[in-house]
Amino acid sequence: MSVLKVNDLRVHFRASAGMVKAVDGVAFEIEKGECLGLVGESGSGKTLTALSIMKLIPENAKIAAGEILFHDINLLALPNDHMRGIRGSKIALVFQESGVSLDPVFTIGHQMTEALFTHRRLVNRKEAKEIALEYLNRVHIPDPLKTFYDYPHQLSGGAKQRVGIAISLLNSPELLILDEPTTALDVTIQAQILDLLDEIIERHDISVLFISHDFGIIARMADRVAVMRNGKIVEMGMKNEILSNPKDPYTVNLLESVKALSWR
């Protein structure tokens, strides 16, 4: 059974020049333990699709139609306080730059335990700290205790992204949405974070929606691939099928560009 099922999702933006159909009839499913890669160029609607699942779309956007079924619950029909119980706990999101999503005035430890107090209703500070340290360890932060008391600006970009991933895992989510999780990083750090994500996906048997503009990363991480353009999924299928035998002209063009800029 699928963990997530999106049906005919349409998200519209109010703009000065009229209405922009940023997501225009998107449909996909993610099975348990599966990683679906969503690839497309900037402005294709990838991030907005992710934000719709979390019900965190910008104020000037509107979900015009569609269903987002998490197991059998339609998230779009869910009242806000119920959604708050799912967001960050059953479904977690890791952004491109965890440095921006972390609060600069609180320590890493504070922000991690806060997530635990909110969702697990823990009251014991000592227990919360132990869980936080355990997760910092899981994402291979070299000195978890020091990092626990650090502020975000004291960490490198790679370490911040590790913390972002640790926070997303704290409440054992069933679905992890990774929105360009390595795009802001240098290639050597990117390779380390991708290794870490491999390990985590394996260990937690988690379902993943992996969003990237980089076909190389998608090819490495995903089981199935959906190619997005202008708010629509133009092609979707098993990774090897799409890479070896793309059908949509846009996918063909995209893969040709990737190929021309490949270093082998």
């Binding site: 190389g216 190929k259 490949s262 270093w263 082998r264």
Partner: peptide
């Protein structure tokens, strides 16, 4: 450089790129 990198850092850079082709 691309066929036979010598310095360990160059090798690391090259091996870090995820590639499909």
């Amino acid at each position: 450089i691309f066929t036979g990198p010598v310095h360990p850092y160059t090798k690391l850079l090259l091996s870090s790129i995820p590639r499909i082709f």
